[in-house]
């Protein structure tokens, strides 16, 4: 017989933290789309205790602060993000990424908190959090911590939260009014994880790049960002040679691996090519936005 799994259903963040702190090896259960699939692989992948976050209403909403910051509760599903009106311009990349995670059934269950805590480098949210300069809000026995995304993803499937901590929200700072953003995901087949993905946030003035943030998914143990690549683009008109140079710098920073989705070589070939496409789409968006 399978070992029974203890099951907790706290109603508040505080209760959840208390359970995590007191029950050894207890594990949060969010949408279950990663965790339960893993548990089905066998007893080895079954935590002794699950703390379901389903009933904690505090974790469920998307709100906008007066300064424009968008706060997304950890238990907000991919589907809800994909349909939210609060992600436009510089944050459109968030909505776009959520809309291309897996298939509808998984988007209806899976959550942003679960996705980033799993920290799969092939997932869609991690690069987006980096490109949008988001912050992860965490609660533990000693209180609340705010962790910049760049410090949250520390290694392959590893984050900087402690076992007794809980991600409660992700905050996306407001982007400049003229910013546009794009998520470009390349997959072998629909619904697959990315072979390579590019998250881009860009401000243009008269066709020149004012500021840009680029993060790559599936190109290393954590999302890849290269300040030098961004600097190479700033104050240029994003000509082919600018983009090629930036792509080359990103390739140097990337460390993709051979896997079923493509060889490392192919992923390196894709990086500058997808970057070009992403920038082109961002430029088109900027034009369309101005016309509107």
């Amino acid at each position: 017989m399978a070992e029974p799994v203890e099951f907790y259903e706290p109603r508040t963040i505080a209760e959840a933290v208390a359970v995590l702190a007191s029950v050894p090896d207890a594990c949060c259960l969010a949408g279950g789309q990663t965790l339960v699939a893993g548990m089905n692989m066998g007893p080895l992948f079954r935590p002794p205790a699950l703390v379901s976050l389903q009933r904690i209403d505090e974790l469920k909403g998307i709100t906008q602060r007066p300064d424009g910051t968008v706060v997304v509760g950890a238990m907000v599903t991919h589907r809800t993000v994909a349909q939210s009106e609060l992600f436009g311009g510089g944050l459109e990349v968030v909505r776009e990424a959520a809309g291309c995670i897996a298939h509808p059934a998984i988007r209806t269950m899976g959550t942003i908190g679960g996705s980033i805590c799993h920290a799969d480098p092939a997932a869609d949210y991690p690069a987006v959090l980096i490109a949008t300069d988001a912050t992860v809000v965490v609660t533990g026995p000693s209180g609340i911590r705010e962790i910049p995304a760049a410090e949250f993803f520390v290694d392959f499937m590893t984050t900087s939260i402690e076992p007794d901590e809980l991600v409660t929200a992700i905050t996306f700072p407001p982007a400049p009014a003229d910013a546009v953003s794009v998520y470009e995901k390349f997959t072998r087949a629909s619904g697959d994880f990315a072979t390579v993905s590019v998250a881009l946030a860009l401000s243009l003035r008269h066709g020149r790049c004012e500021s840009v943030r680029i993060a790559l998914g599936s190109c290393g143990p954590t999302p890849v960002r290269a300040a030098a690549a961004e600097q190479r683009l700033v104050q240029t008109s994003l000509d082919e040679s600018d983009v090629q140079d930036a792509g080359r710098i990103l390739c140097d920073a990337a460390a993709p691996m051979d896997d079923v989705r493509g060889t490392a070589d192919y992923k390196l070939m894709l990086i500058p090519r997808l970057l070009g496409r992403t920038i082109q789409r961002a430029q088109e968006r900027a034009v369309a936005w101005r016309v509107e």
Partner: peptide, 11 residues
Amino acid sequence: FMDYKIPCSLD
């Protein structure tokens, strides 16, 4: 089926 892909309706 995570790694071995068959076409689905969208493909």
